[in-house]
Computed example of a mutant assay.
Amino acid sequence: MKKQLLITAIFMLGLFVSPLMSMPIPSLKESLDFINDQEKVQLDPNHLPEKVKNTIENNEEIKDLPITQAWQIIEEDGTSHFKVKFDIGGEELIKIYDPEGKEIID
């Protein structure tokens, strides 16, 4: 009796799982394309917009910190912002600025 119930359960599970197995699974690239709706371009810190550089130079907290990396992030709608990483004695400080040099606070 137990064998018959087990065989029936396995058969029913097969009926349920079978249609799921034939469904297409999106590739990783397709998933990433959906998630990634922005373009990230690494910049030389010297190529940041003047307004962003002026904001950094006028900020007493960060003006003397070395910039380790800078990016321009271009959104799908064409707007952009700039992400700048500073080195504070081996630790990172990340600031984000709009093209006018205004800091964007998350």
Rank of each mutant, 00 (worst) to 15 (best):
E76Y: 06
V52R: 00
E50G: 03
L65N: 08
K51V: 00
K29G: 00
N46W: 11
D33W: 11
E60G: 03
W71C: 02
L43F: 08
D77G: 02
I35A: 15
F34T: 09
H81N: 13
T68I: 12
T55S: 10
P66R: 15
L48P: 11
P45M: 06
N36H: 15
G78V: 03
V52S: 01
L32G: 06
V52N: 00
K40P: 05
I67A: 06
K40A: 12
K40V: 12
L32D: 11
S31Q: 15
H81S: 13
F34I: 07
N54S: 06
I67G: 05
D64P: 05
I35N: 13
E50M: 03
D44W: 11
E75T: 03
Q72R: 08
P45G: 10
L65E: 10
A70D: 05
D77A: 01
L65F: 11
L48R: 06
W71G: 00
I35H: 14
E50Y: 02
H47Y: 09
K51T: 02
D77C: 01
N59P: 03
I67T: 01
K53G: 01
K40S: 13
I56P: 09
P49Q: 00
W71L: 04
I73K: 07
Q69F: 12
Q69Y: 13
E30P: 04
V52L: 00
N36F: 15
W71T: 04
T79E: 08
Q38F: 15
W71I: 05
L43A: 13
Q42N: 13
Q69D: 12
D64M: 14
N54W: 03
E50W: 00
K29R: 09
D77W: 01
T79Q: 09
W71P: 01
Q42E: 14
F34E: 11
L65G: 10
D44L: 13
E75N: 09
N54C: 01
